[in-house]
């Protein structure tokens, strides 16, 4: 739900005359603006400074040190924490697991979300009910989702296990075998994401002008052709937006992992944020965990920049 509000909305697009207005505005400015600015912006700047800017610098600083058993930086080691991390097979595995998870989540969320939206956009009797149902997971928080799915995947009492038994399929130990555990975590995340993705894509599909479809139908285009040549291009900006939001969200995943697998089995679901948590708040290895934080921040910053670039394009249009 969270990122929904940042969807580019047509009404927030500034009109061309904004620059003009801006100029007019500056005529009306008063001398004492400085004090107002301090009063108006002060609180925000203080909070952002203390809890966003300073910590980033501090994390960078800590990442160059070894920390002692009460968490104080004691020995300067330069980039050694980074070198150790990038050459450690465990950390490489964590990066790889994160990549698999992120790609799995983004692809499945978009494909299923699009399917839901495409099905719900048609006018059928009772379609309102389906639209409500499809958006329902927006009201689910991470721990509730984790508990529901934990039960479904749990051995011997879980739903999948019971279905497997009924059909005499080989027993899958969902959460204790590396591959299936990753699948289980991806399924749960995708389910949790679907409500939001559905609503955004559904909104985009509704905005596609009907005449486009009618015109192509007259030309004898198949629904399939229409989907790939009318629908997809028309909603591609929204698709891009949704995918970056989902992607960044997936990189930050922690709660589901913590509740469902605690990074296991065999570190198969040990995603980047979980690794930071484990090294810092379980092992007390704050220097190393800071280096991991920096790497995580760089990756997320890159994708956010990408998203900004896109938003900028939309806004200037």
């Amino acid at each position: 739900m969270a990122e929904m509000m940042s969807t580019p909305k047509p009404q927030s697009t500034p009109k061309p005359q904004v620059a003009e207005r801006e100029k007019q505005r500056s005529f009306n400015l008063h001398v004492n603006d400085k004090y107002y600015a301090l009063a108006f912006l002060g609180p925000s700047l203080l909070v952002l400074g203390v809890f966003v800017f300073y910590p980033m610098l501090r994390t960078l600083y800590l990442s160059l040190f070894l920390t002692n058993n009460v968490g104080r930086p004691t020995v300067f080691v330069g980039l050694k924490n980074y070198v150790n991390l990038l050459t450690s097979s465990a950390y490489q595995a964590s990066l790889q697991a994160t990549a698999v998870y992120v790609i799995g989540v983004v692809v499945c969320t978009l494909v299923i979300g699009l399917l839901l939206a495409q099905m719900a956009v048609r006018k059928l009797a009772g379609i309102q009910w389906f639209r409500t149902i499809f958006s329902a997971t927006m009201g689910v928080s991470v721990s509730v989702a984790a508990i529901f799915w934990l039960f479904i995947f749990s051995p011997s009492v879980g739903l999948f296990d019971q279905i497997g038994k009924l059909l005499h399929l080989p027993l899958v130990q969902w959460l204790t075998t590396p591959g299936p555990a990753m699948v289980a975590v991806i399924i749960s995340t995708v389910w949790m994401n679907l409500g939001f993705t559905f609503l955004i894509l559904f909104g985009a599909l509704q905005m596609v002008p009907q005449p486009l479809y009618e015109a192509s139908a007259i030309e004898g285009a198949s629904p399939r052709y229409q989907f790939f040549h009318v629908t997809l291009p028309m909603i591609s900006p929204t698709l891009f937006f949704t995918s970056t939001v989902t992607l960044i969200g997936a990189f930050k995943s922690f709660g589901l992992i913590d509740l469902m697998t605690a990074g296991g089995p065999n570190n198969a679901t040990n995603l980047m944020v979980y690794q930071v948590y484990r090294d810092a708040f379980l092992n007390g290895n704050y220097g190393l965990a800071s280096a991991e934080s920096v790497i995580l921040a760089v990756i997320i910053a890159l994708f956010t920049l990408l998203q900004f670039k896109f938003l900028e394009k939309r806004v200037t249009y």
Binding site: L150, S154, P155, S156, Q173, L175, T176, G264, P265
Partner: peptide, 21 residues
Amino acid sequence: VNYGAGANAQNNETASFLSGR
């Protein structure tokens, strides 16, 4: 049989043991 690690593993092995499996 492998029940994995952590609290879940302990819960599951206890449950299985108590149910005679």
